[in-house]
């Protein structure tokens, strides 16, 4: 294919990606070093109230935003260097907390709290998703052919459901005296409230994510299981391998590329955990990095959006993505170079 035809085919797609993905990245990068604020001026205001004999007048100095002819506030954009990053990271508080050796103090700073949750969420759900997905795939592969269709149908439901709605549906089972909380209370004889402390919410979030993603892993592993080499499996049986050994030495190595693929996709998706925070309404207890940026961008009571802090926190989130992708990308690069020579 000539370069010109190739460019005509991929042109629109590349153009959209550059305009709506690459350009915003650059502008976020620039924004994170800037602060846009309304220009304020101090004016002397004399307010008089009618009094007996003479008016009582007080003068005070007020700070008001400058307005232009159209009545809009005039804003100015300044370069502030790393100030926004400092506001997000709050390193002085962080170091003093490290100095005290107090984990709780670090966890009171939003960014570090969000980072801690995002990382533990990503790393804890990964093995669970792969394990559960593999277990379901093996069990379905074991089942009679006629019931496989309905099982796949039911399994797809958690995967396909809107994430916010999915987490809400679990939230409603536990909220207040929802049926599952009531059941646990009956068993344990204590009063349980699942949404009053951080760790129970986190547990529910882990559960939700595994419930939501395991079907994806299952479908992929199930497709992979159809192509396992039967001859290898039979020779393993002849060699006296037990069921467990066959699983470990034949099936899992066969599925290894798929496991890596799922792990990669899962890392990418989990790192931007967001919908759970909305669905479980956990912002008071548990927040994630993406939610932190979202929160900076939502207008506060006065209608202001903290764009520069949002940009800084999203650039910090990006660093995590880069670290996450460096390994797989280096491997792909080596493969590509290897195949070229």
């Amino acid at each position: 294919m000539k370069f010109k035809t190739f460019a005509a085919f991929v042109g629109p797609s590349v153009f959209m990606m550059l305009l709506f993905i690459a350009a915003p990245l650059v502008s976020v990068f620039i924004q994170s070093f800037q602060v846009t604020q309304p220009i304020l001026e101090q004016i002397e205001v004399e307010t008089c109230t009618p009094g007996f004999l003479t008016q009582t007048c007080t003068t005070e100095i007020k700070t008001v935003p400058v307005l232009d002819e159209a009545g809009k506030t005039v804003t100015a954009t300044r370069w502030v260097g790393l100030q926004s990053y400092r506001n997000v990271l709050q390193m002085d508080k962080f170091w003093s907390a490290v100095g005290n050796g107090s984990w709780n103090q670090i966890m009171q700073i939003d960014f570090w709290k969000a980072l801690r949750f995002t990382l533990s969420f990503t790393l804890l759900t990964l093995p669970l998703v792969i394990g559960v997905g593999l277990a379901i795939a093996l069990a379905v592969n074991n089942a009679t052919r006629s019931i496989r269709g309905p099982i796949i149908f039911i399994s797809l439901l958690p995967f396909i459901i809107t994430p916010v709605i999915g987490s809400l549906s679990i939230y409603w089972l536990f909220v207040g005296d929802g049926i599952l909380t009531a059941m646990m209370e009956r068993w344990s004889g204590q009063n349980i409230s699942m949404f009053a402390q951080a760790w129970t919410i986190e547990l529910l979030m882990y559960f939700y994510r595994v419930w939501h993603v395991a079907p994806f892993a299952f479908v992929i592993f199930y497709a992979g299981l159809q192509t396992v080499n039967m001859d290898t499996l039979e020779s393993a049986v002849i060699d006296g391998a037990s069921r467990w050994e066959r699983l470990r030495h034949v099936i899992v190595p066969h599925l290894m590329p798929l496991i890596i693929f799922i792990a990669l996709i899962h890392l990418m998706d989990c790192y931007r955990v967001f919908d759970e925070i909305v669905g479980f309404r956990s912002q008071a207890h548990v927040i994630s990095l993406q939610w932190l940026t979202f929160d900076f961008m939502t207008p506060d009571d006065a209608g202001n959006r903290a764009m520069s802090r949002a940009s800084a926190s999203s650039m910090l989130t990006m660093i995590g993505i880069v670290l996450l992708l460096i390994m797989p990308l280096r491997r792909t690069w080596r493969d590509h170079k290897g195949s070229a020579h």
């Binding site: 709506f20 976020v28 924004q31 990418m268 931007r272 967001f274 993406q290 961008m297 949002a310 992708l325």
Partner: peptide
């Protein structure tokens, strides 16, 4: 390289992009 670039773009958190769109 376009495919690799697309893979990197796929990993970006959407909030990062929205932070770029919103003021514009």
């Amino acid at each position: 390289w376009l495919l690799i670039l697309a893979l990197i773009f796929r990993a970006l958190p959407h909030s990062v992009l929205v932070a770029g769109y919103l003021p514009v």
